[in-house]
C-alpha cells in the first residue's frame, strides 16, 4: 500500500478516536470542572448570516461586573462569579468541595471580528453577539 494512503487512513482513525473520546467525555461528565472548582453553564449558539449569537444561562450571578467574556478568533471563554459558593451536599459525583464560579469554553468555527463583539446581561442570561468576518452584501437584481 502506498505510504501516503496508509498515513491518510491512520490520520482518519486518529480523528475518529478523538471524536469518540470527546463524545464519551461529554456524555458521561457532569456539568462541572472539578479541578478548577467551576460549574459549566448551559448555553446555546445561533448563527445568522452576519453574526454568531450565544446565550449563556448564569443563575446566581448578580451583576455584569462578576462576568468576564474573552473572545479570540477560534474561541469564546466566559467566566462568572457566583453570588455565593455552592456545595452539592451528599451528591458524591460533585465531591465535597464548594463551587464558586461558572466557566465555559465555546469553539468558533468561522472567522470573527473579535473587537466588534458585544454582550448584554439581563435576568441571569448573558447574550453575546459576535460579527462574522465574512459578511454578506445585498446586490441589486437587474
Amino acid at each position: 500500500m502506498e505510504d501516503w494512503f496508509s498515513e491518510y487512513i491512520r490520520r482518519i482513525k486518529r480523528e475518529i478516536d478523538k471524536t469518540f473520546k470527546e463524545i464519551e467525555s461529554e456524555f458521561f461528565s457532569p456539568l462541572i470542572d472539578y479541578n478548577n472548582k467551576c460549574l459549566i453553564p448551559l448555553y446555546d449558539v445561533k448563527e445568522t448570516i452576519n453574526e454568531i449569537i450565544i446565550h449563556v444561562d448564569l443563575p446566581n450571578v448578580k451583576s455584569k461586573k462578576d462576568i468576564e467574556v474573552m473572545i479570540s478568533e477560534t474561541e469564546v471563554i466566559v467566566e462568572a462569579k457566583l453570588v455565593r459558593s455552592i456545595k452539592f451536599e451528599d451528591l458524591v459525583i460533585y465531591g465535597k468541595q464548594a463551587y464558586d464560579k461558572f466557566r465555559l469554553e465555546i469553539p468558533l468555527n468561522v472567522p470573527v471580528e473579535t473587537e466588534k463583539a458585544k454582550a448584554i446581561f439581563r435576568n441571569g442570561m448573558l447574550e453575546i453577539h459576535i460579527p462574522k468576518k465574512i459578511r454578506f452584501h445585498k446586490i441589486e437584481i437587474e
Binding site: L31, L39, I40, L42, D57, P59, N60, I86, F88, G124
Partner: peptide, 14 residues
C-alpha cells in the same frame, strides 16, 4: 429558589 433550581437542573435539562 428560582436561581438555585436553574443551577441544579442543568444536567437534567441537557
Amino acid at each position: 429558589q428560582a436561581e438555585e433550581i436553574r443551577l441544579k437542573l442543568r444536567e437534567l435539562m441537557k
